[in-house]
Design a protein around this nucleic acid. Sequence first.
DNA 1: ACAGAATACGAACGTTCGTGCTAAAAAGTC
DNA 2: GACTTTTTAGCACGAACGTTCGTATTCTGT
Lengths: 200, 200
Amino acid sequence: MGKGEETRQAILDQAIALASEVGVSGLSIGALADKAGMSKSGLFAHFGSKEEMQLAVLRRSQERFAEYVFKPALKERRGLPRLRALMTNWLNWTEKARLPGACPLNSAANEFDDQPGAVRDAVAAGLAEGRRMLGNAVRLAVEAGDLRADTDIEQFVFELVGIELVAMQSQRLFRDKQAIPRALDAFERLVRDHQPSRKE
Amino acid sequence: MGKGEETRQAILDQAIALASEVGVSGLSIGALADKAGMSKSGLFAHFGSKEEMQLAVLRRSQERFAEYVFKPALKERRGLPRLRALMTNWLNWTEKARLPGACPLNSAANEFDDQPGAVRDAVAAGLAEGRRMLGNAVRLAVEAGDLRADTDIEQFVFELVGIELVAMQSQRLFRDKQAIPRALDAFERLVRDHQPSRKE
DNA sequence: ACAGAATACGAACGTTCGTGCTAAAAAGTC
DNA sequence: GACTTTTTAGCACGAACGTTCGTATTCTGT
């Protein structure tokens, strides 16, 4: 890895941290350059445009997300244990990744949902992939017999995402210490509702 | 109502619409002045500072929210019917209010959760009040015997908010037509889980 | 109709925005 | 160690940002 790629990665690490506080659209080249300890134009040269920088930040965020949420969950047994691990990793990942603020992907989802363009597309694709992988974990839980066979997987994922979103709002906006416990309670209720009947 | 107050209200109506597309922090005085058909300085004089304008927009959004979500729900019988009305009104209110984008309060919640200051405080207070009123409706449903007496009201509201948030993300980011039906399904499942036993 | 107040405008402020251009410094290659 | 390529800094640009100020216009009460 040449010097260029090295500093590029360092920039992106700072960028993720900054974006988690001010959002992806609030990420300005000048402020990021200051934080990274280099000149505006020097930093700019790595990306060529602000939009390209935003896309790079999103890609990097997604990598980190996979690293902190999906990868460790693979150690758990397919089915409910893995699904539960996914959920708890998801609820804690920004903290584990030492981000000072919110999940950049989620912030960007709110900022760009009405701004057509490449950034919006990337955000949508990123979150869609997250839902897809979550759906896969749910499907495995069904196949393992941990959830009822007639479970509506998309609906299940839909509700999981809702639990995550409200937990983040409660935690970040209201500083509610009970946010994660409440989210886990909601998760367990959801699972209980889809428990296979005993005789199966 | 003098001329001043009149145009001030007109400005705020435009501001809510614009904020629903670009967010409350993305709301710039110049762009709003263009949209309102007046000069930057003329508009600015109505508020004295950008922050004051943002606070006015939030207050106005909250009024509109109450008008479209809470007020019509009062026509329904206390208990489950009113709660259901609240939920459907909530899921559709931006459309009913003819906002071109998302709920400004929700956007602001994401933008300001890491930006200490008066705006953040106002957003938190606004959403907290929303949760409180929702909690009140849940409590009435418990008292009416529509929900189990041991219902954890805060937890119930928590899950309602989650349903709303994921519905908005699905609708706005993914243009998912099934978002509202899925949200209503989730709501009915939540209600079913808290149904009083038959013999009571 | 007229005086006084309220409201709106245009111009300009200093700053920051994203983005080029050019030259210096650093890194990689032989 | 010289040469080439890559990386960084410096400077400037036009535009937009929030804000101030002085002046013009429009409203309001009498």
